[in-house]
């Protein structure tokens, strides 16, 4: 797991990170969201023992990132902001180089490389120099490098950037599989849809501070208000809308539909359906109105900017 307490990082007069605390339990994914220059990369670098915190502490898999830096780096897989491939190498040689640095035996490297190259659809590109790879292929190979030594903790900075939709799906599936294996994952991304789909927790970082955190539903509820539902009827609502408005927090009405907001859907939804049935108004459907994490993110960042 990852635990950080009041991490700060000062570069001369510039405070890149100012007192970040976070906790990512084993088997869960935390998505770190934030605009460019918010301090995400510096935070990642401190958590992975590449940079030393100015103050505060952090532990990865129980190891102190400053005192046990080498062991931390051995236990973590880091997908850095830039893929960092050596253009004149081929994939297997590249993976062998990093595998050996992580202390893996050659046959383990061979087996894992073959398996991961196959999984990510790069097996056929083995004979190509890495300089000839497309952006997406490079990103996938970098991800394979991260997974090669089977780390307990993965820190992934923009794992699906520059990838085609099929590759994106492959990477997201891989992340989901890793979470299922109880790996701890810290994900930095600008893709809010991806964060919503993969993350158990979201932390929004701005000017070196975490300004909001929670699960995606918690954040939506907190920042966008109670959940919104849309009711579809088989026939026009007519006078029923006025009565429903007295029972529910109605926010929109159409000829055969109605939207309402509720804090307690488990209580309001069944009783509403039952009441409509009693009134002889058959319900075609009742569904939650999708509110994206993007709305949450924009609201948080804009509010922070305004303050």
């Amino acid at each position: 797991m990852i635990v950080a307490h009041q991490l700060t990082k000062q570069f001369d007069s510039f405070a890149a990170v100012q007192g970040i605390s976070l906790e990512v339990p084993a088997g869960s994914v935390l998505a770190l969201l934030g605009p460019n220059g918010a301090g995400k990369t510096t935070t990642i670098r401190m958590l992975t023992s590449i940079l030393k915190p100015t103050t505060g502490w952090a532990r990865i898999a129980g190891l102190d990132v400053v005192e046990q830096a080498e062991e931390v780096r051995r236990r973590v897989g880091v997908l850095t902001e830039h893929h960092g491939l050596y253009a004149r190498m081929r994939s297997e040689e590249y993976l062998r180089f990093f595998g050996e640095l992580y202390g893996l035996e050659r046959d383990v490297i061979r087996r894992r490389s073959a398996q991961l190259l196959e999984q990510f659809g790069l097996a056929d590109a083995r004979t190509k120099r890495l300089g000839e790879y497309s952006k997406g292929m490079r990103q996938k190979l970098a991800l394979i490098r991260v997974m090669l030594h089977d780390p307990d903790v993965l820190v992934l900075d923009e794992p699906t950037s520059a990838m085609d939709p099929v590759s994106v799906r492959a990477v997201r599936d891989a992340i989901a599989a890793l979470r299922a294996e109880r790996r701890t994952i810290l994900l930095c991304t600008h893709n809010l849809h991806e964060a919503e789909g993969l993350a158990d927790q979201i932390a929004i970082i701005r000017r070196g501070k975490i300004i909001e955190r929670g699960t995606p539903p918690e954040l939506k509820r907190k920042l966008l208000g109670p959940t919104v539902f849309e009711l579809q009827l088989a026939a026009p609502l007519n006078g029923l809308a006025a009565t429903l408005a007295q029972r529910l927090d109605v926010i929109g009405v159409g000829e055969t539909w109605l939207r309402y907001r509720t804090d307690a859907p488990e209580r309001d939804n069944p009783t509403t359906i039952a009441w409509l049935a009693e009134q002889g108004a058959p319900v075609l459907g009742l569904a939650e109105v999708g509110r994206s994490l993007e709305e949450v993110y924009l609201q948080v960042v804009e509010a922070n900017d305004a303050s």
Binding site: R73, V78, T80, E81, H82, G84, L85, Y86, G103, A142
Partner: peptide, 10 residues
């Protein structure tokens, strides 16, 4: 931009 992955190793 190949330095950081190297710095992230043990």
């Amino acid at each position: 931009l190949t330095l950081e992955p190297l710095l992230a190793t043990p």
